[in-house]
C-alpha cells in the first residue's frame, strides 16, 4: 500500500521553505467583547474597593496625620482637649497598637500549637469515621459570630481564666510579663488573648490540615517502612513538609486576631498606657478603640478614629501580604 508511488509524491514536493507562522486568533464577537468587559470589570471590583478604602480613610484622616505626624502612632495619649483650659487635643494610638500586638501574639501562641495538634490528629490519629465530623465542627467554629465569642468569653471563660491567671502569677510571678501592678485580673490581655486564640484556631487548623493532607504518601510510607513510629514519621516527614504552610496559616490567623473587634471589646479593659503585664486588667486594641469611642466622639476625634482605622487597615494588609508570600514561595519550591 505504502509502496505505491503516488503516495510518496507529496514527500518529493517538499520545498525546504518553512511557511510563515499563522496567528491563531479568534476575533471575538461583539457579545463576547461585552461579556469579557463586564466580567473583567467585576474582577477588578476588589481593587476598586481596596483602593477606595485607602483613599477615603486617608482623605478623612489627613488632618490628623498632618497635625500629629508620627506621634499619632507612637503617642500614648488620647484626649479631646479642653477648650476652657485651652488644653490641646492629643491623639496617639501607640498603646492601642502595642495592645493589639500583645493580644494577638497571646492568641497566636495559644492557637498555633493547638491548631497544629488538631490538624495532626485529624490527618494521622483520628479513626476514619471521625475525620469528617471533626472537620465540620472546626469549620463551624469559624462560622460562630464574634459577638457570641465575646459573650461567652466574658461570662463563662473569664471566671476560669482569672483563676488560671492567679495561678500563673503565684507560681511564675517572677517572670516580668506575669507581674501584677495591682490585683485586678478581670478583662486582661491574657483573657482577650485566650478568646482571640479560640477564634483563630479554626482558621489556622483549616489551613494546616489542608497542607498536611498534601504530604506525599510515598514519603510517609518510606518513613514507616524504615520502622518509624507515628510521631517520628511526623517529625521527619510531615512537619518539614508543612512548616511553611503552617507559618502562612499562622500569619493569616494573626491578621484575623489583629482585626478582631467586638469580642475583644467585651473582654478587654482599654487603657491608654502600654501594658506588658499580660495578667493585669489593662490593654489596648485599635479596632475596639474605634467601637468604644465612636458613639461619643465628634469631628476631630472622629477623624482620629479614621486614622486609627487606616493604620489597622495597612497593618492587616501587610500581615496578609506576608502570609500570602510565605504560602506562594512554598508552592513554588514544590517542596
Amino acid at each position: 500500500m505504502i509502496t505505491s508511488q503516488d503516495s510518496l509524491v507529496p514527500l518529493t514536493t517538499y520545498s525546504g521553505v518553512i511557511p510563515e507562522k499563522r496567528e491563531l486568533t479568534t476575533r471575538p464577537r461583539f457579545s463576547d467583547k461585552v461579556f469579557r468587559a463586564i466580567v473583567t470589570s467585576g474582577g477588578f471590583t476588589s481593587l476598586i474597593i481596596l483602593g477606595l478604602i485607602a483613599l477615603f480613610l486617608t482623605l478623612q484622616s489627613s488632618t490628623v496625620f498632618r497635625q500629629f505626624g508620627l506621634h499619632f502612632i507612637t503617642g500614648f495619649e488620647w484626649s479631646q482637649g479642653d477648650p476652657e483650659s485651652g488644653a490641646p487635643a492629643k491623639f496617639g494610638i501607640g498603646a492601642m497598637l502595642i495592645g493589639t500586638l500583645v493580644v494577638s501574639m497571646i492568641g497566636l501562641m495559644i492557637a498555633l500549637p493547638i491548631s497544629v495538634g488538631t490538624a495532626l490528629f485529624i490527618n494521622y490519629y483520628a479513626p476514619d469515621w471521625l475525620r469528617k465530623p471533626l472537620t465540620i465542627m472546626i469549620d463551624l467554629m469559624a462560622a460562630i459570630p464574634s459577638v457570641i465569642y465575646g459573650l461567652w468569653g466574658f461570662f463563662i471563660l473569664m471566671p476560669h481564666a482569672v483563676y488560671w491567671a492567679k495561678l500563673l502569677h503565684k507560681y511564675l510571678g517572677f517572670i516580668p510579663i506575669f507581674r501584677m501592678p495591682s490585683e485586678i485580673y478581670e478583662r486582661s490581655p491574657f483573657i482577650a488573648g485566650i478568646v482571640v486564640g479560640i477564634m483563630i484556631i479554626p482558621i489556622i487548623t483549616a489551613i494546616t490540615r489542608e497542607v498536611f493532607s498534601q504530604v506525599p504518601l510515598d514519603r510517609v510510607q518510606a518513613a514507616y517502612a524504615l520502622g518509624a513510629t507515628r510521631w517520628t514519621m511526623i517529625r521527619a516527614v510531615v512537619l518539614p513538609f508543612g512548616a511553611s504552610g503552617v507559618a502562612g496559616g499562622a500569619m493569616l490567623g494573626l491578621g484575623r486576631a489583629m482585626g478582631e473587634t467586638v469580642a475583644i471589646y467585651l473582654v478587654l479593659n482599654l487603657y491608654f498606657i502600654p501594658n506588658f503585664n499580660i495578667l493585669f486588667s489593662s490593654g489596648g486594641n485599635v479596632a475596639s478603640l474605634i467601637v468604644s469611642k465612636f458613639g461619643e466622639s465628634e469631628d476631630f476625634e472622629l477623624r482620629a478614629l479614621m486614622a486609627a482605622g487606616l493604620v489597622l487597615f495597612v497593618v492587616t494588609l501587610l500581615v496578609n501580604f506576608l502570609s500570602d508570600l510565605i504560602v506562594k514561595r512554598t508552592a513554588r519550591k514544590g517542596r
Binding site: I53, G259, I290, L312, F313, T316
Partner: peptide, 29 residues
Amino acid sequence: GRFEGFVRFLVQAMSGVPSIVAGLFIYTV
C-alpha cells in the same frame, strides 16, 4: 486574563480586611 494572579491576590487581601475597617469605610463614604 493577564491579571489573574493579581486579582486572586486582591481577593485574598480583601478577605483580610478587618470588619471594623469595612464599617468605617462605609461610614466615611
